[in-house]
């Protein structure tokens, strides 16, 4: 029987937003094809309420591939497990999200499943002649590319924040175990420890709102307004490259061509000029607010909202205005 399989990535014992995005994509694609959605959970154990959560977002069946050696993510082992499952059930379609782990695993999966890979697509593949076409972002946000393949199995990875997770509750969900034992070869590159940075903060790659500061802020001692704005918005913080290079901010906050690429719903750029290398990492954000005291700053060219003003004056006022709005609109 045919289906659309989706890798339900577990991170720190739960399903993150990216997994729900992938599920929503799989549901949309499966509906167009008249197929069920099978959500595949790989690991040592499944998170609590797995079936409820996955069924809520459209899974008809939950497949558990559980083994003690799969406790930690190892791209080869996970890709091998997923490939074995696709082959055993002749599943022609698979969806992953373009997270760090999804990106690591998808190319290996595509080779071992002898499939085609469309990566970083922003909408669900559409039928075209004998195959499928899909849209993706290319040239560091400077172009949209339409790609086509008629090769099956077809494996796709969804770009983060391209799809809004939507509830699509299924009346019933079945569960099944798929037996898989990773080989010693699949386990060669072993994680031996994890170092978390700033666990109280929202990871940049998942944040829906990002507040970002540049050299216009003059020094690390002035980051209080960035932090506070981020806090009132429930946002992650980011920065331009020179800011990380001189050590005002940690390197993992650097966005752009050489840093992290993000596409949040809202990106607020404060004291950042908008150099092309910076835009390469943020230009696909859905809404961009630019605060800069130079009306000629290139960033305004891609802005949705622009404020020509001194950041030190306007950001505290913005913080107050948001606080006021929130106080009036929450009870």
């Amino acid at each position: 029987m045919s289906a659309v399989a989706v890798w339900a990535e577990v991170s720190e014992g739960r399903f993150k937003k990216s997994t729900l995005e992938a599920l929503t994509a799989a549901r949309t694609w499966a509906d167009a094809l008249g197929l069920p959605v099978w959500a595949v959970v790989i690991g040592k154990e499944v998170p609590q309420n797995t079936s409820q959560v996955l069924a809520e977002y459209g899974a008809d069946k939950v497949i558990r591939i559980l083994h003690p050696e799969l406790a930690e993510f190892i791209p080869a082992a996970y890709a091998r497990a997923m490939a074995a499952f696709l082959a055993a059930h002749k599943v022609p379609y698979a969806v992953l999200s373009q997270t760090y782990n999804g990106r690591a695993m998808a190319p290996m999966l595509s080779v071992w499943a002898d499939g085609a890979l469309l990566s970083g697509i922003v909408q669900v593949p559409e039928k075209e002649s004998a195959g499928f076409r899909a849209r993706r972002i290319a040239y560091s946000n400077k172009a949209i590319e339409w790609v086509y393949t008629d090769h099956l199995p077809l494996i796709v990875t969804m770009r983060a924040n391209a799809i809004i997770p939507a509830r699509a509750p299924r009346p019933s969900v079945s569960e099944e175990d798929f037996a898989f034992t990773p080989s010693a070869e699949d386990l060669r590159a072993r994680p031996v420890g994890v170092e978390k940075v700033a666990t109280d903060k929202i990871p940049l790659t998942e944040a829906e709102i990002v507040v970002s500061g540049g050299r216009g802020l003059k020094g690390p001692e002035n980051w209080g307004i960035i932090e506070e704005l981020a806090q009132v918005l429930g946002a992650a913080t980011a920065c331009s490259k020179p800011v990380a290079d001189v050590g005002w901010r940690p390197h993992h906050e650097h966005v752009g061509q050489t840093g992290i690429q993000i596409s949040p719903n809202l990106y607020i750029a404060i004291g950042i000029s908008g150099a092309i290398q910076h835009l390469a990492g943020v230009a696909s954000s859905k809404n961009i607010v630019v605060i800069n005291n130079d009306p000629e700053a290139p960033f305004f060219k891609v802005a949705d909202y622009g404020i020509v003003a001194d950041a030190f004056e306007v950001v505290p006022r913005l913080i107050e205005a948001i606080k006021k709005y929130k106080a009036e609109h929450t009870h």
Partner: peptide
Amino acid sequence: SIDYNGSQVPGMVAAL
């Protein structure tokens, strides 16, 4: 690669 931003080639080579 900053042209097609595919993140495909290294993982495929490793698998091959």
